[in-house]
Design a protein around this nucleic acid. Structure first.
Lengths: 204, 204
DNA sequence: TGACATTGGATAGTATGGCTGTCCAATATT
DNA sequence: AATATTGGACAGCCATACTATCCAATGTCA
């Protein structure tokens, strides 16, 4: 497959593909002479991954490079693997992890996993909300955690155990990127339903 | 309060404040002569809102302008109000709403609310996932909706009924912006907990 | 009263990110 | 032999979100 065919197959322009090659988001094709290289299905898949991360996940080029680097050299243990996936999906505005909040999380009985990316992100999100004048009570947090456990139940499927590290990592990253918007949209729909139910009767 | 004091109070530089004034994100202060204007606590609050929307919500300047425009002219009915909040928080990459997916949502018994912003976003998120090769089953969707209803239960508080439309809108927007990252982080924490629980025993 | 800093307002410049376009010699293809 | 395409290098472009400079008018303080 030549670069023009890769462009046709993915809907991404040749200059953009060359840009991705330069940026290391895409492996060079198998070189066949100075002016010819061969791309295969793995390249098509990789381009689609990159576009999904950029379009849906709003990841920067730098972050996408982190993803593909991790995919090319995935951690062996399944535990570190999820951590890697969560790490590349961290918020762009993540400052230093605040101390007091972490203590609060562990005090609540949420599994801390020794400062895992997820715990760090939770701590950052909580302190950002608090700084902006929106403190979240322990009761709310506990109830939300229970709800999100039900959501995550569909995420951590047994099939993951049989996958190669690279496939499992790919699965975890792309799954979260694609379904986070679904989960958030469902939250909005539920808000509208509850609002209608609670306010509709007495309000126009 | 002069502009320099507003800058001190919010931690935002004077040139940036002037930029926000130019862009219509911030009302001009009460003019007291050609080279003097007076800002008050409402301006401090507004600047904080703008920074939160930009830093945490990753909203563009254009989107922030939509927010403040809506806040200055909020819809009367509480129902339209939530819709307005959800609309300004829509995904940047929202194409046209796909037809078949909407039918599927209503068939599932999720409240459609006549093409509300939330339903539209859900439809877009579902079709984006499907296009990228990650179809979501009806069972998963139903289960996730139940879970998100529990999350939304903490969002739709009775106090909203007593608030002015502008305050309620502000509450809904800032609440979602600040707590979406918390909810997503909790999902990740739950994934790690379930992964440890399901794979730790048999895996390194 | 006069030196000096600050203000609002206008305008121009900058940094970054994510592409996009141009050029080239070396091949393939016809 | 004529034409098109490729890989590779490199410069240019456009949008976004600021940031800096300039200005005359004004307030502040000695």
């Amino acid at each position: 497959m030549r670069i023009s065919e890769l462009a046709d197959a993915t809907g991404v322009s040749i200059p953009t593909l060359k840009y991705y090659l330069r940026e290391g988001l895409l492996h060079p094709g198998r070189s066949q002479g100075p002016t010819r290289a061969d791309y295969d299905d793995a390249h098509v898949e990789r381009v689609r991954l990159v576009r999904t991360l950029i379009d849906v996940g709003r990841l920067s080029i730098d972050r996408v490079r982190e993803v593909v680097t991790a995919l090319d050299l995935p951690p062996e243990s399944r535990h570190l693997l999820l951590g890697t996936a969560h790490d590349v999906l961290r918020q762009p505005s993540g400052g230093p992890p605040p101390d007091g909040v972490i203590a609060r999380i562990t005090a609540l009985g949420l599994p801390d996993c020794a400062g895992s990316p997820a715990s760090t992100q939770l701590a950052q999100a909580l302190s950002a909300a608090e700084r902006a004048g929106w403190p979240i009570s322990d009761a709310t947090l506990t109830s939300w955690y229970a709800a999100m456990t039900r959501v995550a139940d569909a995420d951590v499927v047994p099939e993951l155990a049989a996958m190669s590290p690279a496939d499992a990592l790919h699965h975890a990253i792309i799954g979260n990127v694609l379904t986070d918007p679904v989960v958030i949209a469902l939250r909005r729909v539920a808000q509208e339903a509850l609002s209608a139910q609670r306010f509709e009767a007495r309000d126009s």
